[in-house]
Amino acid sequence: MLKDITLGQYYQTESLIHRLDPRVKLVGTICYIISLFLVNKIQGYVIALIFLAIIIRLSKVPFKFMVKGMKAILFLLLLTVVFNLFLTPGETLISIWKLTITKEGVRVAMLMAVRLSFLIIGSSVMTLTTTPNHLTDGMEKLLNPLRKLKVPVHEISMMMSIALRFIPILMEETDKIMKAQIARGADFESGNLIKKAKALVPLLVPLFISAFRRANDLAMAMEARCYRGGEFRTKMKPLIYQRADRLAYLILIIYLVICFLAGR
């Protein structure tokens, strides 16, 4: 049941996109999102779609797998569309009872739907092709200049990578404890809201205890290996741009230019 959430999950395979430097993917995703909000002509979206399709193809992640992750936010998408459809003022097209659909509303709603779904798929390509560790590494390096402004860049990225690392562990743990309690006759599914909330106690208490235990163990293990924060820390595999990465940046710039020229 928990395993159906694919948003933000890594999909392991060997591909060109997987091998790219995480910084390229981060910058690329941000640029892609910006491009989605800058263009407002249909040509621009066609180009964005083609670009995305090529990237997905290259990443070798099955499209089915991505769509599965989309299901979780389908509701949000629908909500946005409905609100935009009915609440945008302008030239009336149809009016049912107190609700009116305007010409502008249809346009904005469609625009939002396209933008949002491209945005979500685009950023899930990044998370699907980059391990959490790589991602935070890339982020740390990208944000490094902020250090001069006394921003604790290393600490932030360390916290993020630990948090990300713990998600699958805690999911597994949840699954295990849930099974153990079900084996003792616990029922997590039936009953009203209050009963359901109460049923969570046998799950949450052991889960919290195990999370604290793990956090404690981790802190101890880090200390035992002389972890002292980011100062003077070197990396075993430092991030260095390769030719493919430079090429990727070039392609990104070309995409942005075309998109901008065609879509404005």
Binding site: A180, Q181, I182, A183, G185, I209
Partner: peptide, 17 residues
């Protein structure tokens, strides 16, 4: 079935609450 077939998991102490 679950009342008839009792299952004690690996490291069952983690289920105490």
């Amino acid at each position: 079935l679950r009342s008839k077939v009792g299952l004690v998991f690996q490291y069952p102490e983690h289920q105490l609450f």
